[in-house]
Structures are given as structure tokens and as C-alpha cells.
Write a protein that binds this DNA or RNA. Sequence first.
DNA 1: CCGGAGTGACACCGGTCGGTATCGTTGTCA
DNA 2: TGACAACGATACCGACCGGTGTCACTCCGG
Lengths: 202, 202
Amino acid sequence: MSSMPETSQPQPKPTRSARSRERALATASRLFYALGVRAVGMEQIVETSGVAKTTIYRHFPTKDALVEAFLEREDAEFWSQWEAAISAASDPHGRIVGLCAWIGERVQRPRYRGCPQVNVAAEFANETHPARAIARRHKTEMHRRLAILCVEAGCPEPDLTAMQIALLFDGAFVSGPRLAGFEAGALLAHAAGCLLRCSGDR
Amino acid sequence: MSSMPETSQPQPKPTRSARSRERALATASRLFYALGVRAVGMEQIVETSGVAKTTIYRHFPTKDALVEAFLEREDAEFWSQWEAAISAASDPHGRIVGLCAWIGERVQRPRYRGCPQVNVAAEFANETHPARAIARRHKTEMHRRLAILCVEAGCPEPDLTAMQIALLFDGAFVSGPRLAGFEAGALLAHAAGCLLRCSGDR
DNA sequence: CCGGAGTGACACCGGTCGGTATCGTTGTCA
DNA sequence: TGACAACGATACCGACCGGTGTCACTCCGG
């Protein structure tokens, strides 16, 4: 993961400020995901992270901003793992299978609790909340990437098929533990392959 | 809907008590769904419904119990509409298409905000919360019903295919407005048909 | 080794939360 | 019609919420 030569990693100096910001955000993210945003108070983040409330509020003006940063962070992490999942395969079909395997494994992890973007959207009904924009962007991006893969796979209706596969993935995210008993990765790969093959049929 | 001769509808006398209970629950359900459970205070339910707080707490000992009743109500309503959606068709394939059309229409309604069971699960991380049990039962029931339809459709792997279609449906629930631009019902029907046809393939 | 930006600890703010107690009023059913 | 259960209104409770102000200390670059 960090062994490959990247284009840039210029962080020999995480300042004290950056470090406490990171600790606060990491802790908040963990708690928000595990317990729900509204269920976690700022006090709890302070106690768990060891970062003073004053300091947190210097880095994040409001709790909403912290939520925003949380989703941004999850988004980045998600695409990083997505890239890793497709990197092994050379053909488009293999890349989609790689994605299915990764998602299948991810949603069956011990404390998996669904897609953070979706969870936050469920908690915050106001669509103008900044966090909601991140969630929308995240899902749009997923469809965009899937459509590219569909095109590469020679799919006659890439947009449509990409949306179908996106539904499948989102379904897997919300279903999580209910997939126990099934080999989730294989189930997803079979369904996705089937959808790709049937693209353009009527 | 209420026009068919049911086995029992013995409600010529909704007592005053039953009426205020119903008003409170209906209002709470509407608010919970539209705004999120934690975002709605008991005071707000009182003001919106016109039912006194004392009365609400006589019918529902805690807010959690009200949430429970909300999900129970949504569950019942969901299966009622499910039955209606499959009632028109005689062959299993047609019933599944009917479900897809219903879901496609449902998720594109103006203020659609996802599956209530999933939303509540996102807000309440504690899996022993009574509302969580209702949500689990709801999703199990969906898989059970889909599996029956798959068997009737002559599907060689009904359990597996039912789960795939369930993922598709759950994906549609969370995607809601993002399906705009697609003909959601047709998209779902195409995908479901494809999954049925491919059942048992490798 | 010194100066200042950034830190942690803590007290505190108004507001809102879920839930209770009291009490006068109203609907219902014998 | 009378009596009682259930109602609505209101005031109130302790707990906790997100957010601020103060201040002594500590780390880090120059």
C-alpha cells in the first residue's frame, strides 16, 4: 500500500497543529460511523480523542463542518480502496470481479454498518446540508466509474448497466450482515457478470 | 385497496382514545420519515398532531416505543402495497415486473427519502434496540417472498437469485432521486429478468 | 534559548432534549 | 344523566446539547 513509489508524499513534518486536527477527525470519524452522527456529542469526541474542545473548534468551526470532513475522508478512503481492488486485473471483466470481491469482503467485516454517505443522508434530511452534497458527489462518481468499466467491457448500454450494478453495490452496502451465509463476493460477481452480459437485451 | 372484502374490519367505533393514538402515531411517522427520528422532538409531535404530550405518553411509554410503532406501521403498509403490486399478474414473471414497476414509481415520488427501516437502522446503532428487530424482520421477509417468486418462476437457485434481486431493490431504495433520468421501473425489471434468466449459470 | 502560536483543562452559556406531575375539561357509555 | 376514564394545557424536571471564554502551559522554529 505505502510501498509503491508515489508521485508525492511530502509529509516529513506533520506539525503539532496538524496532528491534533488529525487525531480529532480520526476519532470523530470512528465514532460517527460506529454510533451515528447525532448520537455522538462533541464532549465524547473530546474525551475519546484527548483533543481539547477549544482545539477542535479551532480546526472545525461547527459540528457540521466536522461531519463534512468525515464524509470527505471516507470518500477519499473509499476510492483509494476501489483503485486497489481493480489494480490487480488487466481486463475490464476482471476489474469488476475485483470490485465485487472487495465489496463482498468489506460488507461482511465485523463492525460494518453500511455506507457512511448513506447513513449521514438518512440522519440529515436537509438536502442543502454540505454533507449531503458530498454524498451526492460520491454516488455520482461511483456511477461514472462503473460506466467507464462497462464501456471498456464492450457493454452496449453502459449508462444503464452501470446504474444497475450501482444499485447492486448500494444494496450490498445496506444489507451487510444479512449477506452472511452467502458468499457475498461471488454472489455480486455473478450478478454483475449477468447484468453485463444482458446489457442491451430486451 | 379497502374495496375488497376482507376477513375482518370491525371498526365502526374508533374510540376517542384510539383516535388520538392514531393521530399521534400518524403524525410521528410522517415527521420521523421526513426529518429523521433524532431530528424530531416530542414537542414537535405534540404541536403538529394536536395531541397532548400526556396522551402520547399514555399510549407510548417512551419515544423509542413510538419509533417501534412507526416501523411496524411502515412494515404493514409496505407489504400491503407489495400485495397490490403483484395482484394484477397471474404468472410469476409478471408479478416480479409488477413489483419493479411499483418500486420504480415509489422511489421517484417527490419526498421519497429511502427505506424507513434502513434509515432508522442508520440512526440507531444499537442492534438490540427493538426497532432494529423490526427492520431485520422486514428485510428477511422481503427475501423470503422473493425466494417464493423465484421458485414459482422455475429459478434453479431461488435463494441466491432472490438475494440478488433483494440487493437490487434495496439499492433502488437508497438511490431514489438519483434514478431520475432513467425509467426506473423498466431498469429494475430488466435487471431482475436478467438475474432470473442467469440463475444457476456459472 | 527565547518568544509566540497553539495547546489542554475547565467553567460556563442558553437552548433543547425526553419525560413527569398537576389539574380542569370533555367525551363516552351504562 | 351521571360518573369515570381519557383528554388537553401548562409548568416543570434534570440531563445533555453545541458552542464560547479564560488561562496556564508546552511545543517548536528562528
